[in-house]
Simulated scan of single mutants.
Amino acid sequence: MNKKLFIIPLIVLSSFLACTSDKTATEETTVVKLSSPDFNADSAFAYTKAQVDFGPRIPSTEAHTNCLSYLVKKFKSFGGEVFVQQGAAKTYDSKNHQLKNIIAAFSPEKTQRVLITAHWDARPFSDKDSDPKMKDKPFDAANDGASGVAVMLEIARQIQQKQPNVGVDLILWDIEDYGNANDDSADETTWCIGSQYWVKNPPVKGYKPMYAINLDMVGGSNAQFTQDEVSRKYAPEIVQKVWSIGNEIGYSAYFVSDISPSLIDDHYWVNKAGIPCIDIIDYSANGVFYKNWHTQLDNLNNIDRNTLKAVGQTVLEVIFREKPAA
């Protein structure tokens, strides 16, 4: 074999590989400059676990009471001005409860404000479980409840360390998930009792943040957040803002452009209060919720830090890109 002829292809191949390697390295090291601080997914996971460790946070139970104290204490430790809105509530099974919406305000002196919400209660039974023996048993509600709360706790921790230009309000809704699975009324009023109560009994008269974002089931693996009809109807510009930023900073696999049907979630009632509100929720284009929804498998083992990161970083970035009032 002619050694010169052998060397030349090697040189060409080496040059090609070098160029390819450089290109890959360049692409991999391309980082979008964020306006927001780094959202810590490990921290959010720890907050999820802390809630789950209390047991299912079912209204009128010891676990619910203990978790309430924990959440109030955490928000206060992050510098929030905390208020617990309480009111009498009756669930569809004729049981009486004292609902407790947890409200935390950060930089209350700022007139421009963003509202972030999630529900903190757990459903009393896993009625969607495949095992008939488990359908009347409570479940951990790690994703359906605790994940959204955990993201908000980490957001609170971050904005204490670096304040955005706008004020931030956080509301944790109570008795959201105690609805009648067969509720076929127009507004499905057996669900979202805490947000309904807040709309009818506003703690601050005339409260009008620029917009609101509700978080629901934001910790499952391979989650996809579609654009539901209620969000698109009432707050199309906010949908565009959030999904565009999510895609820009690297989370296009989560914030997909798929259109999904209407659903009654807490964002529905916030919109009824005249505040444009969207829902970030694991909900498919054909109207199917997170795969472990209302089952025993909604537990800590099925919480994904990558999903918590995608949602938390996106929401933080949305907040921190807001400009101060002129």
Results as ranks from 00 to 15, higher is better:
140 D>C: 13
140 D>W: 09
140 D>P: 12
140 D>Q: 15
141 A>K: 12
142 A>V: 13
142 A>P: 11
143 N>K: 06
144 D>C: 12
144 D>L: 11
146 A>G: 00
146 A>V: 00
147 S>V: 02
147 S>Y: 03
147 S>Q: 08
149 V>Q: 14
149 V>G: 14
150 A>C: 00
150 A>F: 01
151 V>E: 08
152 M>A: 06
153 L>Q: 12
154 E>K: 00
155 I>G: 00
157 R>G: 14
157 R>H: 15
159 I>R: 12
159 I>Q: 13
162 K>P: 00
164 P>L: 08
166 V>G: 03
169 D>E: 13
169 D>F: 00
170 L>A: 01
170 L>E: 02
171 I>T: 04
171 I>C: 04
172 L>A: 03
172 L>Q: 03
173 W>F: 09
174 D>Y: 04
174 D>K: 04
175 I>W: 06
175 I>Q: 11
175 I>T: 02
176 E>R: 14
176 E>W: 07
177 D>S: 14
178 Y>R: 13
178 Y>G: 10
178 Y>S: 13
179 G>W: 00
179 G>H: 06
180 N>T: 01
181 A>I: 06
183 D>S: 09
184 D>F: 02
185 S>R: 03
185 S>P: 06
186 A>Y: 05
186 A>G: 07
187 D>P: 08
187 D>V: 07
187 D>S: 10
187 D>Y: 14
188 E>F: 03
189 T>S: 10
189 T>W: 04
189 T>Y: 11
190 T>I: 01
191 W>K: 08
191 W>F: 06
191 W>A: 08
193 I>C: 05
193 I>L: 14
193 I>E: 12
193 I>R: 14
195 S>M: 11
197 Y>A: 05
198 W>V: 05
198 W>S: 07
199 V>F: 02
200 K>E: 13
200 K>T: 04
201 N>P: 05
202 P>H: 00
203 P>D: 10
203 P>I: 02
206 G>C: 01
207 Y>G: 10
207 Y>D: 15
208 K>M: 09
208 K>Q: 10
209 P>E: 12
209 P>T: 03
210 M>R: 10
210 M>A: 07
210 M>V: 08
210 M>D: 14
211 Y>R: 01
212 A>Y: 15
212 A>N: 15
212 A>E: 15
212 A>W: 03
214 N>F: 08
214 N>M: 14
215 L>C: 07
216 D>K: 03
216 D>Y: 01
216 D>E: 12
217 M>Q: 09
218 V>Y: 07
218 V>F: 07
218 V>I: 10
219 G>T: 13
219 G>W: 12
220 G>T: 09
221 S>N: 13
221 S>D: 11
221 S>Y: 06
221 S>V: 07
222 N>C: 05
223 A>G: 13
223 A>P: 11
225 F>L: 04
225 F>K: 12
226 T>S: 15
227 Q>V: 07
227 Q>D: 02
227 Q>A: 06
227 Q>R: 12
228 D>T: 08
230 V>K: 13
231 S>W: 09
232 R>F: 03
233 K>S: 10
234 Y>T: 11
236 P>M: 07
236 P>Y: 05
237 E>Q: 15
237 E>W: 12
238 I>L: 06
238 I>Y: 08
239 V>I: 11
240 Q>A: 12
240 Q>C: 05
240 Q>R: 13
242 V>H: 05
243 W>L: 04
